[in-house]
Design a protein around this nucleic acid. Structure first.
Length: 279
DNA sequence: CCTTAGACCTGGAGGC
DNA sequence: TGCCTCCAGGTCTAAG
């Protein structure tokens, strides 16, 4: 569950379930899950900490605890689930890599089939932007500072396709493979267009489309494409409103032509070659 | 500094 | 059924 709208949906769910609750104990069973310290220290430091505040930047979740900031990234398939009792099914159990037992008897667990997700624990910062991990992350797409000028300055000297730039979280944070395609369709720009060929007006169209699409997707609780195991909270519905992503061979919503699928840097990319202009 | 290929992981789908 | 290849809401890294 990866891009900004899905991460925000998870954050909203966890805030509702976990706000001001205390961690009684932590058990990490996949050593790489704790990214910046030993599993032992990670487990020890989180004991008796309360979940106080909840933030998102790009695809990162931040849990402000009493003495630490806990930062998590679900990458491709990570899931956080709050429940009364751990699942019994072996198929699910084998992919649970972190168990946070809460003082009220409930359980938060982290499940991740591909083990790509990571968590890091930092000494508490007044300003979360000062966290080391965010030094290499651009502004969140919904941040008021994420403007057409901001984007233009970040990409004007680059030679990569604009799709590649939108996936680069150092430029702007929160878009992934689905929303990058949708944003470029809305902005009527061919994803293969070289960044340095775009002008400020193009950047304005991209930023405007990005903010609108991400906000709308959050309202719809994100996009649920491949439904994995259940037990999670309610799935999103934004897949019904996708205009190009995974709609190859379908007719474009704006013209008579067919949506095509190409590869850009080995990532599937969907577009309408008629509506989206190559710059 | 910027770019690109490969690595990190697992399982589902489709071809033979 | 089995084996093989490709594919997946992502990001690090090493090397050019």
């Amino acid at each position: 569950m990866p891009e900004a709208p899905e991460v925000q949906t998870v954050l909203n769910y966890l805030e509702k379930e976990l706000k001001d609750k205390e961690i009684a104990s932590v058990s990490i069973t996949h050593p790489k899950l704790a990214d910046n310290m030993s599993v032992e220290d990670f487990q020890k430091d989180l004991k008796n900490q309360h979940f106080r505040r909840f933030f998102r930047r790009g695809k990162y979740l931040v849990f402000e605890m009493d003495d630490y900031d806990l930062v998590a990234h679900m990458r491709m398939e990570g899931k956080f689930i709050v429940c009364d009792k751990l699942p019994e099914e072996e198929k699910i159990k084998k992919h649970i890599h972190g168990i946070f037992s809460l003082s009220d008897g409930k359980i938060l667990y982290y499940q991740d089939t591909r083990k790509f997700g990571r968590m890091a624990l930092f000494d508490k910062k007044e300003n979360l932007s000062d966290l080391e991990i965010f030094k290499k992350v651009g502004l969140d797409v919904l941040d008021p500072g994420c403007t057409k000028e901001y984007l233009y300055n970040k990409i004007k000297n680059r030679k990569v396709p604009i799709k590649t730039a939108l996936l680069n979280q150092q430029i702007l944070a929160g878009l992934g493979n689905i929303y990058a395609d949708e944003v470029l369709f809305e902005a009527k720009i061919d994803p293969r267009s070289v960044c340095s060929h775009l002008d400020e007006k193009d950047c304005e169209n991209i930023i405007q489309a990005a903010k609108a699409i991400i906000k709308e997707a959050i309202k719809n609780k994100g996009t649920t494409i491949r439904s994995f195991s259940s037990g999670n909270h309610e799935p999103g519905t934004f897949q019904e409103y996708l205009k190009v992503h995974q709609r190859n061979n379908e007719t474009c919503k704006n013209c008579e032509n067919e949506i095509i699928c190409i590869k850009i840097n080995n990532r599937s990319t969907y577009l309408c070659p008629q509506c989206q202009k190559l710059k």
